[in-house]
Design a protein around this nucleic acid. Structure first.
Lengths: 222, 222
DNA sequence: CCCGACATTACGGTTTCCCGTAACGTTTAG
DNA sequence: CTAAACGTTACGGGAAACCGTAATGTCGGG
């Protein structure tokens, strides 16, 4: 089992619960630390490396309240920073996010070792994950919603998200070509923009731009 | 201190932590129960009344995962139901919601006794609240964000939300009068609808319907 | 170099939205 | 009852979005 664990979680109640789970797994009090901010986390990790007692496991949330300015704003930022200074540390993400494709993306892009969504039986889930990691395995929670892929058979490209963000920010459709040409986004023609929007709406059975914006906001595409 | 407490929370990790807080306050194990669903909660409460050992305190979340169909879908539904059968029970809401005006609304409309947002020091906050309630006081967390009122000086009416929901669902502006006339919403004239939308956008400095929909989605107006 | 396939842009007609003005209806005060 | 004030609706011109089609550009293979 792990001898040194760091918990990064800005909700005290959740942090307490994670600590209890570690206790249940036989990880003693002095084997773990907890912090409320990513910036504190990276400092601790650096210090632990310097003292030749590096952490073995990182348990982190993804989103943090931005009440005080931080260099590392999200769990993703933190994991990237950790991978730079201690690439072999095991990383477990414990987040309210429950969409399988988001978890898979983290698994692939950031090479995390486990993803647990905060849900009905998340404490049990968490323990199973930690045990799996201690045995050198990866752990992908089965409480993740696979349905999202089915609900959204449509794949939004980077071009789409830029376009949708401009619309959601109030840019008139006819002015988008100006922005695209300035920022070297192609295709920049108004006609192409109209066609793309039309195609997206047809595919997703959406009948207006307002409908489309509501759709992507609900699904956190933008 | 309370002798019988019911915790309604669908995240196991949070539930565990709330229970630990109760333990810290000297409320023993057999004095409390916890459930994952609102429907289970109301059953327990009814049973407790029938057995002449009613609960004294209800600690509930607001939003629940809708994985299985429930009669009571939200904490608000639950509290309303509870107030009908046991109006004197103390009610404490423990939610991710941290906007002061939402909490105040619950305080006023549902006559809840305390509101604690899940945040950095929510466990401490929760304990303070429970102690206050045990002493017959109400407790309004000071971790709530007062800023929202300033950010949104605009007050959306019921008419506005109906209108915006129609737009967000893809109803064409020109077709909204048809819907309004059918459902006896006034004013129903296209001209009035245009004027109202225009007024909202001018007031909030929004330049298009897309912009407006993004705005209300971000602020959970609809 | 030429050609075809494809992506991108340009253009024009139609619909919808936008916005100002005027007409109509209702309520209230005198 | 009338007049004024206000809310609602009707109308019309202009702008933007929508959508089909044609023209132009781009890239690779022959």
């Amino acid at each position: 089992m792990f001898k040194k664990v760091l918990i990064v979680e800005d909700h005290e109640s959740v942090s307490i619960s994670v600590q209890k789970s570690l206790t249940d797994l036989g990880i003693p009090y002095d084997s773990r630390d907890y912090v409320y901010y990513c910036d504190d986390a990276i400092k601790r990790i650096e210090k632990a490396i310097a003292e030749n007692e590096p952490y073995e496991l990182l348990i982190t949330d993804l989103s943090f309240e931005e009440d005080t300015p931080q260099l590392l704003k999200t769990g993703v930022d933190l994991i990237k920073a950790v991978k730079e200074i201690q690439p072999k540390m095991k990383t477990l993400v414990f987040s309210i996010e429950n969409r399988a494709h988001v978890a898979q993306l983290l698994l692939k892009e950031l090479d995390i070792d486990a993803f647990i969504p905060k849900a009905r039986h998340d404490a049990k889930d968490l323990k199973l994950a930690i045990e799996a990691l201690a045995n050198g395995k990866k752990y992908f929670s089965n409480n993740l919603k696979q349905t999202v892929k089915d609900e959204t058979p449509f794949k939004f490209t980077d071009y789409d998200t830029v376009l949708l963000k401009l619309l959601a920010n109030g840019t008139a459709q006819k002015d988008i070509p100006i922005y695209f040409k300035k920022h070297n986004v192609v295709p920049a023609g108004l006609s192409s923009i109209e066609k793309r929007l039309s195609q997206i709406k047809t595919t997703l059975n959406l009948s207006s731009n307002e409908h489309l914006i509501a759709y992507v906001k609900d699904r956190k595409v933008i």
